[in-house]
Amino acid sequence: MDEKVKYELEFPITSSPQLLYQYISTPSGLSEWFADNVNSRGEYFTFIWDDSEERARMASKKSGERVKFRWVDENNKDSEYFFELRILVDEITKDVSLMVVDFAEQGDLQEARQLWENQVADLKHVLGSV
């Protein structure tokens, strides 16, 4: 397996940081745009898409600002890979952006970016932020 590379994407979002945080940090919020279904048990989240299921641990969070999920194996052991969703607010304009930090194999980078663009488009639709 190729080594994965870290990448970041930033998406402007018309939403309050508090509302946006609900959609990036709760199972019900995440299941509205990120995965077909999301369940949580304590700090462990199960993300379900069609026939695939992935588990992650909420490694850190700061209310209203960011969440970080670290992928885990079947024994709940942390992998070296994670994805982080950060809410950025411009101090002057108060514009809100969502910063995505994720990993992908070099050959899959473009596809991974496209996937996030599609998912964040769904998030914007749910938020009424077009």
Rank of each mutant, 00 (worst) to 15 (best):
S16N: 08
P17N: 10
P17E: 09
P17H: 06
Q18M: 07
L20Y: 08
Q22L: 06
Q22R: 12
Y23L: 10
I24Q: 07
T26G: 13
P27A: 12
P27F: 02
S28R: 12
S28L: 11
G29Q: 08
G29Y: 02
G29K: 05
L30P: 03
L30F: 00
S31Y: 01
S31M: 05
S31N: 08
E32M: 07
E32Y: 00
W33G: 10
F34V: 09
F34S: 13
A35R: 01
A35D: 03
D36A: 04
V38D: 12
V38P: 07
V38M: 09
N39I: 02
S40Q: 15
R41C: 08
R41A: 12
R41T: 13
R41D: 15
R41L: 11
R41P: 00
G42K: 03
Y44A: 05
Y44N: 12
Y44V: 15
F45P: 06
F47E: 12
I48N: 05
I48T: 05
I48D: 04
W49K: 04
W49Q: 08
D50K: 10
D50P: 00
D50W: 00
D51I: 01
D51P: 01
E53C: 02
E53M: 02
E53P: 00
E54P: 00
R55V: 04
R55T: 11
R55L: 05
A56S: 15
A56V: 05
R57C: 12
R57A: 13
R57F: 05
R57V: 14
M58Y: 01
A59C: 02
A59G: 11
A59N: 13
S60H: 01
K61T: 04
K61N: 09
K61H: 09
K62C: 11
S63T: 13
S63E: 15
S63A: 13
G64K: 04
G64Q: 07
G64Y: 03
G64I: 02
E65H: 06
R66C: 00
R66G: 00
R66P: 00
R66Q: 03
V67T: 10
V67N: 06
V67E: 06
K68N: 15
R70D: 10
R70E: 13
W71P: 10
W71L: 14
V72M: 10
V72C: 13
V72R: 08
D73Y: 03
D73T: 05
D73F: 02
D73W: 02
E74G: 01
E74P: 00
E74R: 08
N75S: 13
N76W: 05
N76Y: 12
K77A: 15
K77W: 02
D78E: 15
D78Q: 07
S79L: 11
Y81R: 07
F82E: 13
F83S: 09
F83D: 13
E84S: 14
R86F: 01
I87E: 07
L88K: 14
V89I: 10
V89G: 04
V89W: 01
D90G: 03
I92H: 06
I92N: 11
I92Q: 10
K94L: 07
K94V: 02
K94S: 12
D95Q: 15
